[in-house]
Design a protein around this nucleic acid. Structure first.
Lengths: 185, 185
DNA sequence: ACCTGAACACCGTTCAAGT
DNA sequence: ACCTGAACACCGTTCAAGT
């Protein structure tokens, strides 16, 4: 009985994640939670039991992406020159964070609220970016006075605009390149 | 009678704008329209009669800012070297568009929707930015391959992050400077 | 002409009642 | 333990009824 109950709970958990992935993917991260519960075939109370906040649901969905971004940073650090590693990671970052509409905004907000359910995941992302930045600075590829906060703010800015526009990958990469090399001449 | 009626309508229009300014200023551009109507001491139907969409209300509120930004561009073009004029205008742009929470997002969205009530105002802004860019490029202060769309996208990115964060003017200016001069070295 | 607010169809969130 | 859905307090938006 306890076993059966746990299996049910696990199945509901799974269904909610699937439904949330579908709905967030189509309507963005501000979608109706009721709609997600409906799509999962579950009472609204059950959604709240499994995910007490919208952010906790979002967190469960993006944890994979965050871990992949961290692995990607390590991989790039080992296989590619520091400057190239940084720009490539930034491209991946923007692409990944644009997998759900509203996700860049959720990440930026979370980074400024230590009590957010998304905080830990996002902080891990920022650390990964900071390490790639430090390496690029050590070899003199990036000016030493740029901080990780500044880099992340600018990259988040690109992710935020990209989220709101029908931008293709080409334009996003162009914006990141401009951000790195600068507009002035 | 007709006169009196028109005076009433004009007064309600005015009250709605004042209330919207207060509420948007405090709660951002996604605030409750009902709350605005309540604050204005007016029925919700009256709000919809004067401003059929949320964007039409926003448009009425930011038209002043847009016109001032256009004037500012002309003034800067006359009095300051092109490179300095561009960066100063960008600073003003970000500061202005951050006067209501959510305004940068509204502007970016409007620019990609020709039928938006905000489209004309925002397009005027983009034109102003484009002219300053062209001047800076003519004197060789900015690389010639940068388009107005790219410049505006990057500047909007900064405005979007600034909107979400407790950033001071100093950090915003720093981000714009980095955007112009680049991170790479 | 213009104003009003009830009415409708939705939300997010909680919590007593069920199994 | 877990699930359910009614209940509450809000929305945005429309529209018949009033002046």
């Amino acid at each position: 009985m306890v076993e059966a109950s746990r299996a049910d709970a696990r199945r509901n958990h799974e269904r909610l994640l699937i439904a949330a992935h579908e709905v967030f993917g189509k309507e963005g991260s501000e979608s109706s939670l009721r709609e997600i519960a409906r799509r999962a075939g579950v009472g609204i109370g059950t959604l709240y039991r499994h995910f007490p906040t919208r952010e906790s649901l979002l967190e469960a969905l993006i944890r994979d992406s965050v871990e992949q971004l961290r692995d990607r940073a390590d991989q790039l650090a080992r296989t590619v020159p520091p400057e190239r590693a940084l720009i490539t990671w930034l491209q991946d970052f923007v692409q990944r964070t644009n997998s759900y509409g509203g996700m860049p905004a959720a990440i930026v907000a979370a980074l400024h609220n230590r009590r957010s359910d998304l905080y830990a995941s996002c902080e891990a992302m920022r650390v990964a970016a900071g390490e790639l930045l430090a390496r690029a600075q050590q070899v003199g590829a990036v000016r030493p006075d740029v901080t990780a906060t500044e880099l992340f703010a600018l990259a988040s800015g690109v992710a935020l605009v990209a989220d709101q526009m029908p931008y293709g990958k080409a334009l996003v990469d162009r914006l990141l390149t401009l951000m790195m090399s600068g507009l002035a001449r």
